[in-house]
Write a protein that binds this DNA or RNA. Structure first.
Lengths: 120, 120
DNA sequence: ATAATATATGAACAAATAATCATATGTGCA
DNA sequence: TGCACATATGATTATTTGTTCATATATTAT
C-alpha cells in the first residue's frame, strides 16, 4: 500500500529513482523515526524545557518548580508526568513531597546540542 | 507581575526558598528557553524527522522526498519551509528542481543524541 | 479520626498545527 | 508564445495538545 501512495504522490516522476531507493535502504524503520519525533516533541514545549533546565542544578519538588516558573501546581504535575513517561525525569518520594531529578545524561546532551544551534 | 503569579501558584509554601532562588539565578533568560523549545518542536514531527533523516545521505529534490516518504508534494513543501525557516535545511535551485540538504552538523548531532536515548 | 498540605488525575476548553485542496509562481521546452 | 512540469503558498479543516478547574489520593500532625 505504501507503493500506491508513492505513486499518487508524485505523478510526473521528476524522481531520481536510484537515489530514492538508495536513501530508502538506509532509512531506519518508521517506528523508530516515529519514536524519535515523539521524544523531541517532549522537548518542544517551553514549560517542559524550563522544568528540565531547572533540574539541571538539583532535584526539586513539584511546588518548588511551580513557584520557580510562576505556573500552577497542576500544570507542573501534568508536564512532569509527560517527562516521566518519556524517561526524562525520575521521581523520589519523601513524605508529602515528591522530588524530581533528571533521569540521565542524555537530557543534558540533547539540550546542549539544541543550545549550540540557536546560539548562532 | 511574575511575582504575583508565583505567589498565586503555591499558596502553602512547601517551597525551599533558598533552593528556588539559587536555581532561578542560574536559569537562562526566558527568551532563550522559548527559542530552544521552538527548535525542538521542529524535530517533534515524524514527517520532518523523516525528511531530515533522508537528507542525511544526500541532497534530494522535493519530488524525491515526496515519493520517498509516500506523502504529497504539498505536504513536503510545507514542512521544508518550516525546516528552512529554522535553518535546519538549505535549498539549491537547479532548473525546475529545488534540491534540499542539511544546513549544518547540529542536525546530525541532535538527532544522534535523540537516537541514543530511545535505544535503551 | 480529622484537618491540612502536597501531589495527581480526569474532563473541558482554547490554541496550535499538519494535512488537504485549490491555486499561484517559476522554469524549460516545443 | 503556449504548454508541461516542479515547487510554493493561502485557506480550511481535523487533530493534537497545554492549561484550567474540580476533585481524588496520599501523608503528616494534632
Amino acid at each position: 500500500m505504501s507503493e500506491q501512495r508513492q505513486a499518487e504522490s508524485c505523478e510526473y516522476l521528476c524522481v531520481h529513482q536510484d537515489t530514492v531507493e538508495k536513501v530508502l535502504d538506509q532509512m531506519p524503520p518508521d517506528e523508530m523515526l516515529y519514536d524519535l519525533a515523539e521524544l523531541f516533541k517532549v522537548f518542544g514545549d517551553s514549560t517542559r524545557i524550563k522544568i528540565l533546565y531547572a533540574l539541571f542544578e538539583e532535584e526539586l519538588c513539584v511546588c518548588d518548580i511551580a513557584q520557580l516558573l510562576g505556573i500552577t501546581q497542576t500544570a507542573v504535575s501534568h508536564q512532569l508526568r509527560v517527562l516521566k513517561t518519556n524517561k526524562l525525569v525520575k521521581a523520589r518520594k519523601d513524605g508529602k513531597n515528591v522530588f524530581y531529578s533528571l533521569a540521565d545524561a542524555h537530557v543534558y546532551k540533547i539540550i546542549g546540542q539544541g543550545m549550540e544551534h540557536i546560539e548562532e
